[in-house]
Structures are given as C-alpha cells and as structure tokens.
Amino acid sequence: MLIFSLFKTLTDQTVTVELKNDLSITGVLKSVDQFLNIRLDNIKVLDEARHPHMMAVKNCFIRGSVVRYVQLPAQHVDTQLLEDATRREAANQAKR
C-alpha cells in the first residue's frame, strides 16, 4: 500500500521501467494500480535499433510482475516521509 501510494504521487513524472528481460522503457507515469501494473505515456525503448517491435507504440500498460526496477526522479521523492510511513506501517503490522 505504501509503495502504491508513492507511485501515485509520482504521476506525470518521467520514470524508467526496467523489465526482467533487460528491456528498459522510459516514459511519463500515467497511472498505477494495487498490483503495481504501470501505464506509461510517450514511451521510448532503450536501444531502439535492437527493439523495433515497439516502434509504433506511443503508450503502454506494463504488468507489475515483469518489473525488475523502476528508476524514479529523486527530487520528487520525500525520503523522510517514506521512512516515517514505513515505520508506521511496520508498527501496524506488528499489532495484528
């Protein structure tokens, strides 16, 4: 839930999604859901010459389960807020 919320705050920012087949796609984050499926607009595939498959694709839906990393814009991530929220969520988990 915590990380889903973080992604929601990064809507309209440019991110780079690296998949588990080493494909990297840069684009504007349009939406994200609870499974961390990701919608990207205005996409660009890294090393386009080797990947002409997506030449005509302008925006895409990426299944959360195939994501290895997402590179985020550091200036738009409040790390203090994240750490506090993580501690709070951990405390709630322990109470259950």
């Binding site: 990380i3 973080l6 992604f7 588990k20 961390l36 959360g64 389960s65 994501v67 290895r68 990393y69 997402v70 590179q71 985020l72 814009p73 550091a74 991530v77």
Partner: peptide, 11 residues
C-alpha cells in the same frame, strides 16, 4: 549507479 530506485520484492 542510480539515484532513486524501486526494487520489486520478488527479485
């Protein structure tokens, strides 16, 4: 090197 990174837990 990467500045800020989300790492998916299944890896």
């Amino acid at each position: 090197k990467m500045e800020m990174l989300f790492v998916r837990g299944d890896g």
